[in-house]
């Protein structure tokens, strides 16, 4: 994994595109990248480890996705071993979307995730 170079673009695997779409349709987020970051945080919060996503398309350039580098800093803080933070971010986004997908076509429970985190 470490041998790979970090990614310049971040994307969503086709299997999770629908979940991202439903997140947007639910009207919780203004932009897709906000929804993607939320999915990433959900994955982290659920204890997803390091990994890579295969087959993810190109949706965002890392510069626009993480304009101030804050996201990278977070990944470095939470995954100190990770040398390819944007690859990890992409992986976490897709894992977060997968975890949100209950397979019933319903919008992900964003509010439930926020309330659960607030109680934690």
């Amino acid at each position: 994994m470490n041998e790979k170079t970090d990614k310049k673009t971040i994307g969503v695997v086709p299997e999770q595109a629908g979940t991202l779409q439903r997140l947007m349709e639910a009207g919780h987020f203004e932009q897709e990248l906000d929804a993607a970051k939320f999915a990433m945080a959900h994955a982290i919060e659920r204890g997803v480890g390091r990994g890579t996503s295969e087959g993810a398309g190109t949706k965002w350039h890392f510069g626009s996705f993480d304009s101030d580098g804050g996201l990278k800093a977070v990944i470095e803080a939470l995954y100190p071993e990770e040398t390819n933070p944007y690859r990890q971010i992409e992986y976490l986004i897709n894992e977060g979307l997968r975890l949100f997908d209950k397979g019933n076509g319903q919008a992900p429970d964003v509010v439930g995730a926020i309330l659960a985190a607030a109680k934690a």
Binding site: K37, F38, A41, I44, E45
Partner: peptide, 11 residues
Amino acid sequence: MSPAWVSLLRP
């Protein structure tokens, strides 16, 4: 909701 992901990771 733009920075909501941070709230999720706050702890």
